[in-house]
Design a protein around this nucleic acid. Structure first.
Lengths: 222, 222
DNA sequence: AGAAAATGTGACAATTCTGTCATTCGCTTT
DNA sequence: AAAGCGAATGACAGAATTGTCACATTTTCT
């Protein structure tokens, strides 16, 4: 069951929301001020925080920044028509915002939407010192970002999805080039392998990542 | 528990393997020939097929092709030193191969390796008629592939990972450009939005996918 | 309506990507 | 050792990407 943290100092609203949200299948915690909110974010690791920006004790923006830093998504509760807050809230990294007064159903729909999109799509493939964030399409070697061209990325992903398997030249050419109906020279693959090795290997002259399997093709070492 | 399909006509070997593999925590089915194998692939949907290429009834390559077509990974069992079979088997899409006679431990290690790499990393994000294969880094609109440049892809992925959220221009510039320490003109983002719309929208003049939020930024419609 | 601000557009130069050669290198086999 | 083969390499031209500008259009505000 998803755990929500409600950061709000209007205790009547807290009571009503807690009741409604529990009927919708959420587990609610609440904090009346910034101090308590920060403590609960650390100890309870909620799945999402609902933050009123007009807190008496502390301010909502600080809570938001803290939550986001800890990877907890945030929905802002704002006084209606508060345009400035909206913009600043989004800049602060709020995942959504909803203007008071709001219909509980609307709030639940926003909560579900944020949970849906923050929970998935954060795949990461790690191979030795190499790391690929498939969600963002980024490749890192250690903490240094490696820039791959679109085709280099596709070729590398194909290797990653078939780690350890010996892939024939024909397979690789089919997968990366022929599938788009192009016909390219056999050597094109060789050149791309070389370029990948230059970007990814410690010592491109002595590849330990993308190995040559003579007479057959290549293999990404596990 | 993983379900393995053993396609092998040496019944003594089937008995020994079934026994050993069950002690290793696998559930085994077996088929003595091509006909039975194809039927079991359909009805039982095994997680992996172990296929002897020297079948008496039918041939292992056909079974392999069928299994791969259904998304079932395959390990070939080959007579030792059978170089041709090895190459052809890999071309047929076998995920690995092992030469007979083999040590049972070696087989189990290969099975685990194939299961590990075939189970994950096949994320797919669907948004209306758009489909992104994050495993391969490919984007489709309907059944037509869309070619995005590396930066276009990164920008689009950022939108996808924050579906529905209003993203400020500053956030987008930070995420795609500034994170690499570059400083680009504000208009660069506008131009990239235009290029994405041209490639992804039905009618780029009337965007329904990437919406402009005037004064703030953009939003990917859910 | 007119002015001001924000966003959209077409065109451009610089850079990078992409595919192909010709050549070299390094195994295998004779 | 020499020949033959597959793979690696450096260099190159054409194509695509990338970032910017000047200008057009749309929206917002007075």
């Amino acid at each position: 069951m998803e755990k929500l943290l409600l950061v709000e100092d209007d205790s009547a609203l807290v009571r009503r929301l807690t009741e409604y949200l529990s009927t919708e299948g959420f587990h609610c915690l609440s904090a009346g001020g910034q101090t308590q909110a920060v403590a609960l974010i650390d100890t309870e690791r909620p799945d999402l925080a609902l933050v009123d920006i007009t807190l008496a004790e502390g301010n909502g923006f600080a809570v938001c920044a803290y939550a986001r830093g800890k990877g907890v998504p945030v929905i802002f509760l704002t006084a209606s028509g508060d345009e400035l807050s909206t913009v600043t809230g989004l800049d602060m990294g709020a995942d959504d915002y909803i203007a008071k007064p709001f219909r509980p159903k609307e709030l639940v729909s926003r909560i579900r939407s944020v949970l849906r999109r923050t929970s998935g799509n954060h795949g990461e493939i790690v191979l030795g010192e190499l790391r690929v964030d498939t969600g963002k399409g980024l490749v890192f070697r250690g903490d240094r970002q490696i820039f791959l061209s679109a085709l280099e990325y596709r070729l590398f992903m194909f290797f990653l999805n078939h780690r350890g398997r010996i892939l024939t030249r024909e397979q690789l050419l089919d997968e990366i080039w022929d599938s788009a109906g192009e016909y390219v020279s056999d050597n094109t693959l060789t050149v791309y392998i070389k370029r990948l090795r230059e970007k990814l290997e410690d010592d491109p002259q002595d590849p330990r990542l993308i190995l040559t399997v003579r007479g057959i093709g290549y293999q990404l070492k596990e």
